[in-house]
Simulated scan of single mutants.
Amino acid sequence: KLYLDPFMDMYNSEIISYSISRKPSSQAIVSALTQAIEATNDCKYRRPFHSDRGWAYQMKVYNKMLTKNKIFQSMSRKGNCYDNSVMENFFGVLKHKMYYGVVYYSYDELKNAIEKYITYYNQYRIKSKLNWMSPVEYRLSFVA
């Protein structure tokens, strides 16, 4: 069993940062948040970070980091799963493609499989909404 805390760029559905831990912890989410902030530092526009209503996204340290970096916090409405449907879809695809029906015998084996899947998802998994490109290919196609 492990806990995955990913951050997705809604522009191209790329997982821009994540942390994997043995148990839910504030350190894991802050680590992923720090990476996401660094990955989006060059953004010219207002940066909204959307999340569900989980305890990790309501921590004072999380909110302070967003405020310090001029990031707008967007949070799902209570009881409305559709607000976070993009991330829920990612989790569903991840479980379907590399988890269901497979037995992982250790934390490290599962962690490595998830890391490999995220690399595949970002760099090779094409999407029709991205003109049949992967998230990374799509992002790079607009870099001048």
Rank of each mutant, 00 (worst) to 15 (best):
K68I: 03
Y120W: 10
V30Y: 06
S128M: 15
Y121W: 07
V136Y: 06
S134L: 00
A56S: 14
S51L: 07
A144D: 10
D5M: 11
V93M: 11
T34E: 07
K78C: 12
Q123C: 14
N12M: 01
S31E: 13
N69Y: 05
V102T: 14
M75I: 13
L140A: 04
P135Y: 02
V93N: 14
T119S: 06
N12I: 00
Y100E: 01
K44P: 15
Y82K: 09
A28V: 10
P135H: 11
L33M: 05
A36W: 09
Y121K: 06
P48I: 12
G92R: 03
T67K: 13
G92P: 08
D5K: 05
Y121D: 09
M10S: 10
N112P: 07
E88F: 08
Y3E: 11
A56T: 14
Y3M: 07
E109I: 01
S74E: 04
E14R: 05
Y11C: 10
N122W: 06
T119N: 13
E88H: 10
Y62D: 05
S51A: 03
L130I: 04
I126A: 00
N131S: 06
N131T: 08
Y124T: 07
G79I: 09
Q35Y: 08
F90Q: 11
Y99D: 04
N69S: 00
Q35T: 06
S76P: 04
K1P: 10
G54R: 04
Y62S: 02
D108L: 13
Y117G: 05
R53L: 00
I15E: 02
K95H: 11
V86R: 10
M133S: 01
Y3Q: 00
E137L: 02
Y45N: 12
M87R: 04
N80P: 05
S51W: 10
V30S: 11
K111W: 07
S128N: 07
E88N: 11
V143Q: 09
L33A: 00
L130M: 05
A32M: 03
T67G: 04
M59K: 06
T119R: 06
N131Q: 10
A113L: 07
L2I: 15
L94G: 05
Y117S: 05
Q35S: 14
Y107P: 14
N131E: 03
K116F: 08
L2P: 12
N89M: 09
V86C: 03
L140E: 10
V86G: 05
Y57G: 06
C43W: 02
K111L: 10
K64Y: 07
K70D: 14
S26Q: 15
Y62I: 02
S128Q: 14
N89H: 13
I29Q: 05
F49L: 05
L110M: 12
K97C: 09
A113Q: 14
P135T: 01
W132Q: 13
A32G: 01
Y82M: 12
D9M: 01
D9P: 03
S21D: 15
C81L: 02
S134H: 07
M133N: 11
L130Q: 00
Y99I: 15
Y107H: 03
